[in-house]
Amino acid sequence: MTEEDRLGPAGDAVYEALMKAHQGLSAEHSHALNARLVLLLSNEVGDATRLRELFAAARDMGFATDRREI
């Protein structure tokens, strides 16, 4: 499933803002922040069918096995 690019030219600024949101947090707090963000963004999307598609897409990608890749 290919998602439409909705960030466009704002992508770099949004990515920078996300890094800033994490700045100075411990790993534990950073994970908590991500969890909150997923919930907030889910509410923002609002459409349950759409969200199920996105959750599946994220999960179906698989996960890195090599630590070095991260």
């Binding site: 499933m1 290919t2 998602e3 439409e4 690019d5 909705r6 960030l7 466009g8 992508g11 770099d12 990515y15 996300l18 890094m19 994490h22 947090l25 790993a27 950073s30 994970h31 991500n34 990608m61 890195a64 890749e69 991260i70």
Partner: peptide, 26 residues
């Protein structure tokens, strides 16, 4: 940080299929 590295790693993974993530690679 670990989190910055993780987020970037996932941008690179998503970029394999998602155009929006490709544009985030800098």
């Amino acid at each position: 940080s670990e989190m910055e590295a993780l987020l970037r790693h996932e941008v690179l993974r998503l970029a394999e299929t998602q155009p929006f993530a490709r544009r985030l690679i800098n």
